[in-house]
């Protein structure tokens, strides 16, 4: 039994035209037994930056609290919001600090990063449990349904999707992938981050 699969759950993030989306299922279980259908594992870090933490339930909470604390300290000391790239490296180094006794989490970061000119650029990244970063240009996946998410996303995703189309694409990808995974599902949540607002929706899903 792997600690990464003990509680189940999956996260996916996708890039669109001047927007990004991050989505997750809502199940928390102990192996085959479902405990909760409202377990949040995607968290806002700033107004335009979200992090998804699929993996062992206890580490979801521990890491979320840790990142919230460190982002708050960064904001106070630097007197500015953290960049998604900077945050991704912060997550990565936090994980690598525990190289030989890791947190059982494979984080996904999604946000809009501000370039020196002030323009906003979509940013997504995923990591393994010891912090090796994958900066993808299209989509990243993690969790117990990752192989299914790869398959569906590879078939549905296309470049330069507008926010509403990106929402549909990421939702369909997530729902159809988790329906083939016994450890993921039981509802889903989607956040589409655009330059002037974040659209968050909770999706109904199969409950079996």
């Amino acid at each position: 039994m792997s600690a990464l699969e003990y509680n189940g759950g999956s996260v996916i993030a996708m890039v669109g035209k001047d927007c990004v989306a991050i989505a997750s299922d809502l199940r928390l279980g102990t192996q085959a037994l479902g405990i909760s259908s409202n377990f949040q594992r995607v968290f806002p870090m700033t107004d335009r930056l979200y992090v998804g933490l699929p993996g062992l339930g206890t580490d979801v909470t521990t890491l979320y609290e840790r990142f919230r604390y460190r982002v708050n300290m960064y904001t106070i000391k630097e007197e500015r919001e953290i960049n998604p790239e900077t945050f991704a490296h912060m997550v990565s180094s936090t994980l690598y600090q525990h190289r030989f006794g890791p947190y059982f989490i494979e984080p996904v970061v999604a946000g809009l990063s501000k370039s020196p000119t002030g323009a906003l650029k979509p940013f997504i990244a995923a990591m393994d449990l010891i912090g090796c970063i994958n900066f993808a240009k299209d989509f990243v996946v993690a969790g117990t349904a990752s192989s299914k998410l790869y398959g569906v996303a590879e078939g549905l995703w296309e470049p330069d999707l507008e926010p509403e189309d990106l929402f549909e694409t990421i939702s369909q990808t997530l729902l159809n992938a988790v329906d083939r995974d016994a450890f993921s599902g039981w509802g889903a949540v989607v956040h589409v981050i655009t330059k002037d607002r974040v659209i968050s929706r909770t999706l109904k899903a199969r409950m079996d």
Partner: peptide, 15 residues
């Protein structure tokens, strides 16, 4: 709140 020995916590309607 449902809490297990690992420190997993979740707010639930029943447990």
């Amino acid at each position: 709140y449902w809490i297990d020995y690992l420190g997993t916590v979740v707010e639930v309607p029943f447990a």
